[in-house]
């Protein structure tokens, strides 16, 4: 009987509840999209970052092992005096070295890779012939944004490595070593994401305020019109609690419907945004769903509060007096 009363009442008030439902669903869609898209972007960019990895240089003595999920390149490093400057020079497989960090930029190609700081100190340029430590070739320049920019790399496998370069996403595994993290990229990523989030949050906030205003106004109008109905309920022996239960039932049902519509629309809109901008699809996340659900129930809880106040104020005898 409870659901019969609730559903019949909702049907009767379709003209009032449909705009309410629409306002809340649109708001939920925007909030949901904001959460899903920013979370998806974050995941996407983190995944991309993982491709580059964070680099850890292990100083001697070399460790007995590295973690199975990490990759390592061994090298022999010694200081060389070139053009009167002391420059750390490493024997390493350059293709293997460059695989360690996709963000490193190499200009030119050669068996001799000179970090851009080192090139500046010893005055060598891209494409110049260079001879160092028995190796000869044209100069390519490395721009890594790390301390390797002060190195020279010679493409020769180290026979007696004294240093190891490890690619890892978890540099904390190798405590006490000198880790080079892609901090600038992370900062940029976070800044971009923050801007997107702020913009979307602002839009979502406005839509939430509009929805809240719509829910409260429509509820107030309807609660006033329903005073007689509450009076009839009271004359039939309904307690204040049982009236609130019926009203809550109506709004919880509306909250569920708006949640379903809002969440589905958010997923669809997120899919459109992500597939057209990032070539990816959104994942269904319990966190996003719970956020949207909480907002939906909060919106309709406001409506229940309006009815609660109205039914508390209502004088059943006054409402039922003969007109």
């Amino acid at each position: 009987m409870f659901f019969k009363i609730v559903i019949s009442s909702i049907k009767r008030r379709a003209g009032l509840y449909i705009p309410m439902l629409a306002a809340v669903s649109i708001s939920l869609c925007l909030v949901g999209t904001e959460v899903i898209v920013s979370s998806s972007f974050n995941k996407l960019m983190n995944k991309e970052m993982l491709k580059y990895g964070a680099n850890v240089i292990l100083r001697p003595p070399l460790p007995a092992k590295i973690y199975s999920t990490d990759e390592a390149v061994r090298m022999f490093v010694s200081d060389n005096l070139i053009n009167g400057k002391k420059v750390p020079t490493a024997f390493v497989s350059i293709p293997d070295l460059l695989k360690m960090n996709g963000a490193w930029l190499v200009k030119g190609s050669s068996g001799i890779l000179v970090g851009e700081d080192a090139a500046s100190r010893i005055h060598v340029h891209i494409g110049e012939e260079m001879k160092v430590d028995g190796a000869q070739g044209s100069v390519a320049i490395l721009e890594s944004g790390t301390e390797f920019d002060s190195y020279i790399f010679i493409n020769k496998k180290a026979d007696t490595p004294n240093m190891e370069l490890i690619r890892t996403s978890k540099p904390e595994r190798y405590s006490g070593t000198n880790s080079i993290i892609l901090s600038e990229m992370i900062k940029t990523k976070n800044a971009v994401l923050e801007s997107i989030k702020k913009l979307m949050f602002f839009v979502a906030l406005i839509s939430m305020l509009v929805a809240a205003a719509a829910v409260i106004n429509l509820s107030r109008t309807d609660a006033g019109a329903r005073r007689k109905e509450f009076g009839i309920f009271k004359s039939l022996g309904a307690s204040y609690t049982s009236i609130i239960k019926l009203i809550s039932g109506e709004f919880m049902l509306l909250a569920l419907v708006s949640l379903a519509i809002g969440a589905l629309a958010a997923e669809l809109l997120s899919w459109m945004i992500l597939s057209s901008t990032a070539g990816t699809v959104p994942q269904i996340e319990i966190g996003s769903f719970l956020t949207v659900a909480a907002i939906s129930f909060a919106a309709f809880l406001m409506a229940v509060l309006v009815y609660l106040i109205e039914s508390k104020r209502m004088d059943a005898a006054e409402e039922l007096r003969n007109e």
Partner: peptide, 10 residues
Amino acid sequence: ENIMLAQYFH
């Protein structure tokens, strides 16, 4: 249903 409403509150 109007009659059942009174029964429901009871």
